[in-house]
Amino acid sequence: TDCSIVSFLARLGCSSCLDYFTTQGLTTIYQIEHYSMDDLASLKIPEQFRHAIWKGILDHRQLHEF
């Protein structure tokens, strides 16, 4: 599957948040998979999107835990 942040955000309906990640040089889900809610806040992601992205990260982690 596509591991880009572009497609990750698109699946979550949060494509408008892409610039918050790319300006930090973040391009793949693996770069953010251990981010906390505070990390997302420090990227200045608007609160209404933060929870959806956080949930997406948690779902991603569960899929990749062996």
Rank of each mutant, 00 (worst) to 15 (best):
T1V: 09
T1E: 12
T1K: 05
D2Q: 05
D2M: 05
D2N: 09
D2V: 04
D2W: 03
C3F: 13
S4T: 10
S4I: 02
S4D: 09
S4N: 07
I5G: 01
I5Q: 00
I5P: 00
V6G: 11
V6T: 15
V6D: 13
S7Y: 09
S7H: 08
S7M: 06
F8C: 02
F8W: 12
L9I: 02
L9M: 03
L9E: 02
A10D: 05
A10H: 05
A10V: 05
A10P: 00
A10F: 04
R11Q: 07
L12M: 10
L12K: 05
L12S: 05
G13T: 04
G13C: 04
C14W: 02
C14I: 08
S15I: 10
S16K: 05
S16P: 14
S16E: 11
S16F: 06
C17S: 04
C17G: 02
C17A: 08
L18E: 13
L18H: 05
L18N: 10
L18K: 15
D19L: 07
D19S: 15
D19C: 07
D19R: 13
Y20M: 12
Y20N: 12
Y20P: 03
Y20A: 12
Y20S: 09
Y20G: 03
Y20H: 10
F21H: 00
T22K: 13
T23I: 08
T23S: 11
T23A: 12
G25K: 11
G25D: 08
L26D: 02
L26W: 02
L26R: 02
T27W: 05
I29F: 15
I29S: 04
I29W: 09
I29A: 04
Y30D: 15
Y30P: 15
Y30L: 10
Q31K: 03
Q31G: 03
Q31H: 10
I32C: 03
E33K: 06
E33F: 09
H34I: 03
H34A: 11
Y35E: 01
Y35R: 02
Y35G: 02
S36C: 11
S36Y: 03
S36T: 12
M37C: 07
M37S: 07
M37Q: 08
D39M: 07
D39T: 05
D39R: 04
L40T: 00
L40Y: 03
L40S: 01
A41S: 10
A41R: 11
A41L: 09
S42Q: 14
L43Y: 02
L43K: 03
K44H: 08
K44E: 14
I45V: 12
P46L: 00
P46A: 03
P46H: 02
P46I: 00
P46T: 02
E47H: 08
E47K: 13
Q48R: 13
Q48H: 14
F49N: 09
F49W: 09
F49A: 11
F49D: 12
F49S: 12
R50C: 09
R50K: 08
H51A: 12
H51L: 11
H51G: 12
A52Q: 14
A52S: 13
A52K: 12
A52H: 08
I53Y: 01
I53W: 02
I53C: 02
I53A: 00
I53N: 01
W54F: 06
K55C: 10
K55H: 06
K55S: 09
K55V: 08
K55I: 04
G56K: 02
G56H: 03
G56D: 02
G56N: 03
G56Q: 03
G56C: 02
G56Y: 02
I57H: 01
I57Q: 02
I57N: 01
L58Y: 15
L58F: 11
D59R: 07
D59Q: 12
D59H: 12
R61W: 06
Q62Y: 07
Q62M: 11
Q62W: 05
Q62I: 05
L63K: 14
L63N: 10
L63D: 15
H64S: 15
E65G: 15
E65A: 14
E65Q: 15
E65N: 12
E65R: 08
E65S: 09
F66V: 15
